[in-house]
Computed example of a mutant assay.
Amino acid sequence: MAMSPVTVLRSLFGVLGSLMLLTLVYTIFSDGLPFRSDLLTPWMAATLVDFYINVVPIAAWVFYKESNWISAALWIVLLVCFGSVTTCGYILLQLMKLSTKESEDPIYHVLLCHSNKYGVVDKHKQSPVLIARVVFTALGLFMLGTLLYTLLTDGSPFRKELLTPWMVATLVDFYINVTALSVWVAYKESSWITAVVWIILLICFGSITTCVYILIQLSQLTSQDLIYLALFKGGDRAERRSEGVLI
Rank of each mutant, 00 (worst) to 15 (best):
I107D: 02
G14V: 06
T47Y: 07
W184R: 03
W69I: 09
A230N: 07
C211Y: 00
S71I: 06
S30Y: 04
W43I: 02
W69P: 04
F158Y: 12
G155S: 06
P5K: 06
A230F: 13
S182A: 15
S37A: 15
V80I: 14
Y118F: 10
K188Y: 08
L171A: 02
V55S: 04
C211G: 02
E161T: 13
S18Y: 00
T86F: 00
E104K: 15
S71A: 07
F174P: 02
T7V: 08
I199F: 04
D236Q: 15
Q126S: 08
G83K: 04
H124W: 07
T146M: 12
R10Q: 13
A60R: 13
G83P: 09
R133S: 04
A73I: 01
S103Y: 04
D38W: 13
M44T: 06
D105T: 12
I199K: 05
C81I: 15
L141V: 15
E102H: 15
V185K: 03
D31W: 10
D154R: 05
E161Q: 15
V120R: 11
S4A: 11
D50K: 01
E243L: 13
E66T: 13
M20F: 07
G14C: 02
M3E: 05
A59K: 00
D173W: 05
L144A: 13
F142C: 09
K125S: 09
D122G: 11
G155M: 08
M3D: 05
S67H: 04
Y108W: 10
F142I: 11
S11V: 12
K188S: 12
S37I: 14
P165H: 02
I107P: 00
I200D: 03
P128A: 01
H114E: 12
L163N: 05
I76V: 13
A230C: 07
A180P: 09
L218Y: 04
L74S: 08
I203L: 14
Q126Y: 01
Y108T: 09
C88Y: 01
L226A: 05
